[in-house]
Design a protein around this nucleic acid. Structure first.
Lengths: 339, 339
DNA sequence: ATGAAAGCGCTAACAT
DNA sequence: ATGTTAGCGCTTTCAT
């Protein structure tokens, strides 16, 4: 970590060049570039014309130097690469974050945890001056949140970090699970089971909570509850167990589409017709929900919006704005053919 | 795109602070920070001690300003997010690129193409001064290569960009396909078909070329050749067609593991036993190769190494070094149970 | 081997 | 509303 790269000779137009061409001072150009307050319409126009002529683009480094800002934020994904890229939630979220910062000249870095890497290292990264803040995705347990809480830079979480004072945006998981489960019930299912997410993840726990709550409200008792890991393979395993433990099941609430995908495969292989014999509702409304047959009825989990929202919150935090947190987004039922 | 973010009050130790503590000049500190040439061992040690004491970290912006470097490179993925994240090749490659730049203080940005986005926009991004260079992954057709060729910044491609003068690192696709196909033949297959990659991608074409060459060399003629799209679903479709057109097939060379995954599902569903009745060889040695049953025999496609290599080439290019291109990496046969 | 000094391109007081 | 000025933290001649 000793040096940047050797120099580059190309010489681009600077603020001074623009000032000269427009016949004004550097400061004035700077003003129009930064929002144009306190400049007359005429000068602003002249400056803008000069900017256009020269193809001027502000130099990030110079700006960052004087503003004491890196001009970059990180999307922190405390997962190993494998999972990051195999779950469509992540790319959508990354994309949403990109959207939030598309209006300001801020670079969005993707920071994935390395397999053996500690939460402390992530915290150090945040404080290294390379980034001004972070959006943190899907975390197991509180270590990372703990670490980032003491960072000098702000971080906004997607999903409740379970740590008072840390801002986050979250899906209304419980109500979403209630809605999904109710749909199963309305479709006539009575012997309902669930495949949950990991119990060390908030999303896993809350979706289970919602499921249970809906069941109780309907006067039903689950015929099975097995924990999955948000992967297709995990869904298969869970469904296999479920079929053995509760063969009578006629409704299945699965805490992720990917798991539902795996589970449906097992159900079909076992000769259960969907949705006639077993109704299935998934979660995420991911692309795999369209690849199952029949297509999967599911709850939306708008990764992109969640992340965009988090990005906007971070932007606010960075400008010293007071923050309303948590921000809770609601999930919608997408009815297809699996229930 | 008007401004960065408002300022940050925290004041970190600077070169001056280090100089003061070490009792030397700024210039000397700078020297030791940047490699330590031309400084006596004693001074260097004193400086390093001061650096340690203060927890000094060079300010990227100041450095970038004077060196005229952004201190960032982009990994350009001209694919829409969906595919970027659903194919394990990408995360591995990204990771490899990260590795290449881990020793120098260079940020690695992930630039994904937006759905409706033009190659020109990517080119403009490269020239915007946000990055010093790029590594370009998996491209269809030559438009992007064309665009990047005229950029002032260097770009290294992973996969032959088919454009003279552009440096790239590539897998020895043809020989890899030959090896894979030969393995099928050695296992006793004689009625062999292939599922290819997209014909507008170099990897697709070259793997087909290798397949054909191996078949010819063995005096065999393919019983079927159908084009896939490197997705599991595409593999299913292709296998379905193959089963209809060439039901006698006893060997299948698939140009990607993901497609092989889909194809094997179809084969099994059709009652073909693998590897007894149909031998299957995939390509990529991706994680799905372990999830098929039986586990997939496949050719390695070391994404991480390819990208690391590309990163090192880019690093060389950025320091003005002469470059040897292309760099060709070889693929290895991983024998499992599908053939 | 080390220091002095200039300057990278920009923003932000502070004048006017 | 606009200009002047002083740095931000660093690298890099150029002296010594």
């Amino acid at each position: 970590m000793t040096h940047l790269l050797p120099g580059n000779e190309r010489t681009l137009p600077t603020l001074d060049d623009v000032a000269r061409v427009a016949g004004v001072s550097r400061a004035t150009v700077s003003r129009v570039v930064n929002g144009g307050r306190l400049v007359s319409a005429d000068t602003a126009e002249a400056v803008n014309r000069a900017i256009g002529e020269l193809g001027y683009q502000p130099n990030r480094a110079a700006r960052a130097l004087v503003t004491r800002r890196a001009g970059a934020v990180a999307v922190v994904v405390p997962e190993t690469d494998e999972r990051v890229f195999s779950d469509p939630f992540f790319p959508q979220a990354y994309h949403g974050a990109l959207t939030a910062f598309s209006g300001v000249d801020v670079q969005v870095l993707l920071a994935m945890a390395q397999p053996g890497e500690s939460a402390a290292r992530m915290g150090r990264y945040l404080d290294s001056g390379h980034v001004d803040g972070a959006i943190v995705l899907s975390h197991h347990g509180p270590e990372l949140a703990h670490e980032l809480a003491k960072s000098a830079h702000p971080a906004v979480f997607i999903g409740d970090p379970q740590m008072p004072g840390l801002p986050y945006v979250e899906l209304d998981q419980v109500n979403a699970a209630i809605t999904g489960t109710n749909h199963l019930i309305q479709r006539g299912a009575t012997r309902i089971a669930t495949i949950t997410g990991p119990m060390d993840m908030n999303a896993g726990m809350e979706r289970l909570r919602g499921f249970e709550s809906a069941m109780t409200a309907a006067g039903l008792v689950p015929v099975g509850v097995v924990e999955g890991d948000f992967t297709a393979r995990g869904g298969e395993l869970a469904a296999t167990r479920l079929l053995a433990e509760a063969p009578e099941l006629d409704g299945l609430f699965v805490a992720s589409d990917l798991m539902a995908f795996g589970a449906m495969r097992v159900l079909r292989r076992a000769g259960r017709r969907i949705p006639d014999e077993v109704r299935v509702v998934g979660f995420d409304n991911s692309t795999v929900a369209l690849q199952t047959s029949p297509q999967l009825t599911t709850m939306t989990n708008p990764a992109s919006e969640l992340a965009r929202m988090a990005g906007e919150m971070l932007l606010g935090l960075l400008s010293g704005a007071a923050l309303e947190s948590p921000v809770i987004l609601t999930s919608e039922l997408i009815i297809r053919n699996s229930a």
